[in-house]
């Protein structure tokens, strides 16, 4: 019971912090929009239609949703390191709640904040001329949450191992940018050079992005955005399962690792 309250309290703090951090909120909105419109408009004409009846901006849009979710949840992982730096982690670690509930509260907080950031991007759909039914939006929510929880717990896992802020930021950058750029946010999955195709396929974020894209743009079997694994075209559900399996492992590892730290 106490641990449940602990999870809730840790989660609630993350939400409060996000709410009071208007600068972070604004950048969570502006950064993806910037990508969407500058890149999109700049490349739209030279790239032409993407197949499946969508243009480049429309193609990029679900990727950008995925990107803002990924970045949002990663950032929450960073905040564990900030808490250590600014001392608040001590208050948390010495509180009479288990480390596991702290890690869980953190993961859920990161996932919630990142999902909210994703929803902020969903609002742009009409501008991009993508029509989203209420059902698609409802299906997107748990999907974004799942993606965010996986990445958030990866961040927490790293933060509980790497004690210095500088090292953590370096590693985050080395990990986060490839994960985002090589997840199919900006280009379709087909006809990639072999090495790149390989990295995209071992990148768990790709499956989250593919699932979001499938939901938003529809997924006919011959869609150019499909991930092929050993010649098999991944369906939305299969993507979700890969994502969920990865997320599950990450959450467990994060809880374990967070629980062990001194």
């Amino acid at each position: 019971m106490n641990n449940l309250i602990g999870v809730y309290t840790i989660w609630y703090r993350d939400i409060l912090r996000f709410w009071y951090d208007k600068a972070r909120m604004l950048s969570a909105l502006l950064f993806p929009v910037f990508f969407l419109f500058i890149f999109g408009s700049g490349l739209q004409r030279s790239i032409g239609p993407m197949g499946g009846g969508v243009d480049f901006i429309q193609f990029m849009y679900p990727g950008i949703i995925g990107m803002s979710v990924l970045m949002g949840s990663f950032m929450s992982g960073v905040s564990v390191v900030w808490d250590r730096e600014f001392g608040f982690l001590k208050e948390v670690l010495v509180a009479p709640i288990s480390r596991i509930s702290v890690a869980l509260g953190r993961t859920l907080g990161a996932a919630t904040v990142a999902t909210i950031q994703g929803i902020m991007i969903l609002v742009l759909a009409p501008v991009i001329k993508v029509s989203l039914s209420i059902w698609i939006v409802l299906a997107l929510l748990p999907l974004m949450f799942l993606l965010a929880a996986s990445m958030g717990s990866l961040g927490i896992l790293l933060a509980s191992r790497i004690k210095s802020t500088e090292a953590f930021q370096a590693i985050m950058q080395m990990l986060m940018f490839p994960m985002i750029f090589l997840s199919g946010v900006f280009f379709p999955m087909q006809d990639l050079p072999g090495w790149m195709s390989f990295i995209v396929k071992i990148n768990p974020a790709s499956y989250g992005v593919a699932a979001i894209r499938g939901l938003v743009l529809g997924s006919p079997p011959d869609s150019p955005f499909t991930i092929y694994l050993f010649g098999h075209a991944m369906t939305i559900w299969e993507n979700v399962i890969v994502m969920a399996a990865f997320g599950f492992i990450m959450v467990i590892l994060a809880m374990w690792s967070f629980g062990r730290q001194e």
Partner: peptide, 17 residues
């Protein structure tokens, strides 16, 4: 942990709240 209160040598407040 239930039995103790602490004032640490270094601040342990959340200064964003």
């Amino acid at each position: 942990r239930h039995s103790i209160g602490l004032v640490f040598q270094d601040s342990s407040l959340d200064d964003r709240l």
